[in-house]
């Protein structure tokens, strides 16, 4: 049984599996993250075990679990084990992490102010987040989960796990980021092709440095679309962020109060665009105004 410990932002995970090669891939992907966590108390245990004893060797198939698990999890082929661990880690955060409001959103900071990008899968959120991550002026904070502190005017805390690029966004970023920051190309996953991109070193070094939210955007990518901007009302922004959160309702009054104070103080826009250039331009304009 091989064990690997990871720290992403405020959370430490211990990953455990008899599939050594899968964990070796994980170690390689996270080699630039904090090391030497052996003496630490960890937050979540994550396991990748064979579906049955013989499936360790014969058509290897991995069932993922952890301290917190769901009943109907589907096993993953061994060649996609890296992706399986990423999903299992996310699941621990979604189900078990209650020290912040966890929102399904990407985020980035400029100085100590942050932009929060929320939207359903396929809306262009991940691509936009990846584009910002390798722009010199932005500090990447996370591509998938944003952590908001439980206080009035909540702070955004970084959770900069490797960015999960899908399909068309892979070549887009391959031309913008150095080759040695990419993980292996994973083909034929549930979401098509996936390739992980380790964020710039600055994002990892500053993963304990929070930022104050200044702008919320909800992107809609549609090929050929003319750029358009619509201001969201406070209540629309609340509903979007609250439904994108895995735990806000569970946090009760503290979660509600923090979220309300965020939407009351930070402007929010729904933006549509048809190209990466338009997207970056819109974000810059809105950032200036905010």
């Amino acid at each position: 049984m091989k064990r690997v410990r990871l720290r992403i932002g405020p959370a430490i995970f211990e990953l455990r599996s008899p599939f050594r090669s899968v964990l070796t891939e994980v170690e390689a992907l996270y080699r630039r993250y904090p090391q030497n966590l052996d003496g630490e108390i960890f937050d979540f245990s994550v396991t990748g075990l064979p579906v049955s004893p013989w499936r360790r060797f014969l058509r290897p198939s991995i069932m993922f679990g952890g301290d917190f698990s769901l009943a109907d999890i589907v096993p993953v082929e061994k060649r996609l084990g890296l992706l399986g661990f990423e999903m299992a880690i996310n699941l621990q955060m979604a189900l078990g992490y209650l020290r912040h409001i966890v929102v399904h959103a990407a985020s980035a900071a400029k100085d100590d102010e942050a932009i929060l990008i929320t939207g359903e899968s396929g809306s262009g959120k991940s691509t936009l987040s990846a584009l910002l991550s390798y722009q010199a002026r932005w500090r990447h904070m996370g591509d998938e989960l944003a952590l908001l502190s439980l206080e009035t005017r909540p702070l955004l805390h970084p959770y900069p796990r490797p960015i999960s690029l899908k399909n068309e966004s892979i070549p887009v970023m391959e031309s913008r980021a150095p080759e040695d920051r990419f993980g292996p190309l994973l083909t034929d996953t549930v979401k098509g092709d996936v390739r992980h991109l380790v964020p710039p070193q600055r994002a990892i070094e500053q993963m304990d440095r929070p930022a104050l939210p200044k702008l919320v955007i909800c992107p809609h990518f549609e090929a050929g679309r003319e750029p358009a901007v619509r201001r969201m009302t406070e209540s629309e922004c609340y509903v979007r962020l609250s439904t994108a959160s895995t735990n806000q309702l569970r946090l009760g009054e503290r979660g509600f109060d923090a979220m309300v104070s965020l939407v009351k103080t930070v402007p929010a826009y729904d933006i549509s665009y048809g190209s990466s250039e338009d997207a970056l331009k819109l974000v810059d304009e809105l950032w200036q105004q905010a």
Binding site: I12, E40, I41, D43, Y97, L98, R99, R250, L251
Partner: peptide
């Protein structure tokens, strides 16, 4: 208690109260 242990216990306690 160690900081991380205290945070983990506190988060469990608050969740049980909710």
């Amino acid at each position: 208690l160690p900081v991380r242990a205290a945070a983990i216990l506190e988060e469990a306690r608050l969740d049980a109260e909710r």
